[in-house]
Computed example of a mutant assay.
Amino acid sequence: MNQHIFFDNLTATIGALATGKKKFFSQSLKSQGFSALINNTEIHLSGKFQEGTYELEAETPVGILDPAFKVVKWHGNNFPTIIYHHGNNERPFDFRKSAKNTFFQIFVNSPEEIKANLIVVRAPFHNSSIKAYQEKMTDLQNFATMIATSVKLNEAIISELSSKGCDKILTSGISLGGWVTNLHRSYFNTSTVYIPLMAGTFLGELFIRSKYKKLTSENALKNAEALKNVLNFDEAFKKVNSPNVFPLLGRYDQFIEYQVQKESYTGHPVKVIKNGHITGALNTKALRNHILDVLQKN
């Protein structure tokens, strides 16, 4: 077993022990699909895009949620804009070097200046404790609505940027943020390009067949088809013909399995790094280089 596989397996085992009985979808498997959740979620933005944090309210099928975004760097409307979505249980506004924050490591801690406006999105349920987050994730509709809300916020930001004359917008994200990236392309496709990092379109497979299934409840595993019906969105993604998606996958990823998720991207160029999920997230140089390469070429 190589080190990349080892760390993914270890993380899944520790995660399963930490969640205990509060595993994913242990309380409820009832949920609307992504299309309905996106259509029934409302977020309103207005005002200038100045550097700072914007706390918002989203009206959703599960109540009022708390997404937010932070404009970290604003050069002007004539610069390209990168909208980045964080991974599961990250704290994207925490800029301490010790924080679990891929946005900070990729963009803020970059050895070179990135000549683009930088915006990072915080998903609902990521402004509280891990324990509170785990409690919410026992309900499938909470999980699906969390993703749908980030998708709708991404669209609201893009709409505002476009109205101000920004004509080059890149949507990217890692893991959880990668699913948001791909789902936004599936239902809106208003970003110039999409750069999903270690994600695909077969989200249900993450919970029922990858090593991550250790964190999935027994009831959900016994009702795998119901879970896939809510979470997989490969058909919607494939209906979008635009050559504007530039994914990155880890060859040894035990969560976002390469052999499974690469099928999401038939006909699109896939960058493959020799990492697992954990070591891939730590390989910020490779992630940064991929994003900047796409920025330069598009």
Rank of each mutant, 00 (worst) to 15 (best):
G20V: 11
N117R: 10
V72W: 04
S128A: 14
D8E: 13
A199L: 05
L161K: 01
L282C: 08
F207W: 11
H85D: 06
T138N: 02
D234F: 03
T171Q: 01
Y258C: 08
S242M: 09
S172E: 02
T190M: 10
L295D: 07
I5Y: 08
F125L: 08
A123N: 05
A68Y: 04
F125W: 03
S191K: 02
S210Q: 08
F24E: 03
K238V: 02
N9G: 12
Q3Y: 14
G204D: 05
G178W: 01
G250R: 03
A18W: 00
N77A: 11
A58V: 00
S129C: 07
A58N: 04
E51T: 14
P67V: 02
W179I: 12
G173A: 00
L10C: 10
F188R: 01
L45K: 02
R251T: 09
V272Y: 12
A281Y: 04
A148G: 09
V72K: 08
R96P: 08
A18R: 13
T13N: 12
S217G: 11
Y194W: 07
H85Y: 04
V272M: 13
K297V: 13
I195P: 03
V108G: 04
D8C: 13
P111D: 13
K228L: 07
I208L: 14
K285S: 13
A236E: 15
S159C: 10
G280Y: 07
T81N: 06
I5E: 14
G52Q: 10
N89I: 06
E59G: 00
V270F: 10
G204A: 08
E160S: 00
Q296V: 07
L221K: 12
K271V: 07
T284L: 09
D66H: 12
F6P: 04
G280H: 04
S172T: 15
I195N: 05
Q141E: 09
V151W: 03
S26M: 05
T53A: 13
I147G: 03
K115E: 15
Y252F: 15
N241D: 12
L29T: 05
N142H: 11
A226K: 03
F207H: 03
N101H: 13
V121F: 03
G87W: 01
I83A: 03
G280S: 09
